[in-house]
């Protein structure tokens, strides 16, 4: 080995050592910064989920875990008419079970609030006072949902409520009723309230998506001969599509986790004879109201998680 080679080999050794040193330092730094976040995540998210997942296979005596029962809790919960009420579903009569109610929210609330939000965003896009209007619509979303629930109670109040008053003024007396306590219509009244609140959220997202569209694209389409409808379908709608995905998924997550509005209107029972109960209400009642059924609470909470988690994951991974 010549002297030259020897020196080169030494230099190479040093380099490798250097790289390793840097990596070690980096790794320590990474760990230091990650530990607080990861431990919080572990304690408050992963821990409870794993605990519930395990707990859902055991029998419970109030808050103490007893013996392993296999799928017992799962089968019992899924057969419970409080979760899915098959015979009522066939007759389309409420209550139809909490899971069914949640899915009904998804089917009605999500498209309605999405399209209303897009409509308002388009309507406000060129208006002079758009900032004030936007703030007013969005204000509803900033209010805690439990307060929204209380506000809805006022609006739908049989005597003092503004909604019934409007019906009376319009001469539609036959429709006047106690909206939140009539089993067969109450859920729609609550969904309407939910839409009102959530529209502000989707409008805000759509508004920013619309203002991100280069105005010359719209002008170009005008020059190309496209009318307002074509401009919407061919240019605006495809360009706001990513936002639509976010709005829809956030909407689904929001209604799958629904609790406050239903609780404010119908208490822990979820309305008269559970007429508009949702999964969140069932978890709460199973866990905190006698007869306490911890196993069922865990099962129902996990069902919620199974529906919401993949959606949340999809949004988090969107680019």
């Amino acid at each position: 080995m010549s002297l030259r080679d020897h020196i080169d080999a030494l230099a190479a050794d040093n380099e490798v050592g250097g790289v390793l040193n840097i990596d070690r330092e980096k790794a320590v730094a990474l760990a230091v910064f990650l530990i607080p976040g990861l431990s919080l995540f572990a304690i408050f998210s992963v821990g409870p989920i794993v605990y519930s997942a395990v707990g859902s296979f055991y029998a419970w005596d109030t808050f103490t875990m007893e013996e392993f029962v296999g799928l017992d809790n799962w089968i019992r919960s899924l057969r419970d008419p409080l979760i899915v009420h098959w015979s009522n579903i066939q007759e389309f009569r409420y209550p139809m079970g909490a899971l069914t109610h949640n899915l009904l929210w998804v089917v009605i609330h999500v498209p309605a609030s999405t399209f209303l939000g897009l409509g308002l965003a388009l309507l406000f896009a060129d208006l002079k006072g758009r900032r004030i209007l936007r703030s007013m619509v969005f204000a509803g979303f900033t209010v805690p949902p439990i307060v929204i629930g209380l506000v809805l109670m006022f609006i739908y109040d049989p005597q003092a409520g503004i909604f019934n008053e409007v019906l009376r003024v319009l001469g539609q007396e036959q429709w006047v009723r106690n909206w939140t306590q009539s089993p067969q219509v109450a859920i729609y009244a609550l969904i309407a309230g939910g839409i009102w609140v959530h529209t502000g959220f989707s409008m805000l997202l759509y508004s920013s998506a619309l203002s991100a569209i280069d105005p010359s694209l719209i002008e170009s389409a005008k020059v190309d001969g496209a009318g307002a409808w074509r401009r919407f379908w061919d240019i605006i709608w495809p360009l706001v599509k990513p936002v639509t995905a976010v709005v829809v998924i956030m909407g689904i997550i929001w209604v799958m986790r629904m609790f406050d509005i239903v609780y404010a209107a119908g208490g822990a029972a979820g309305g008269p004879n559970h007429a508009y109960s949702v999964l969140g209400i069932e978890v709460y009642r199973a866990a905190f109201r006698p007869e306490i059924d911890y196993g069922m609470a865990m099962v129902v909470a996990l069902i919620q998680l199974f529906i919401v988690a993949p959606l949340a994951l999809y949004i988090a991974r969107m680019n």
Binding site: S216, L217, E219, V223, D224, G225
Partner: peptide, 28 residues
């Protein structure tokens, strides 16, 4: 503009980003 049969090229080209070149050209 659509009633005038004018064509315009914009400073930033204003190509529709979600369409292919052929779709862009064919759009009018």
């Amino acid at each position: 503009p659509s009633e005038r049969n004018v064509a315009m090229v914009f400073q930033n080209y204003a190509l529709y980003p979600h369409m292919t070149v052929a779709q862009n050209i064919g759009y009018p």
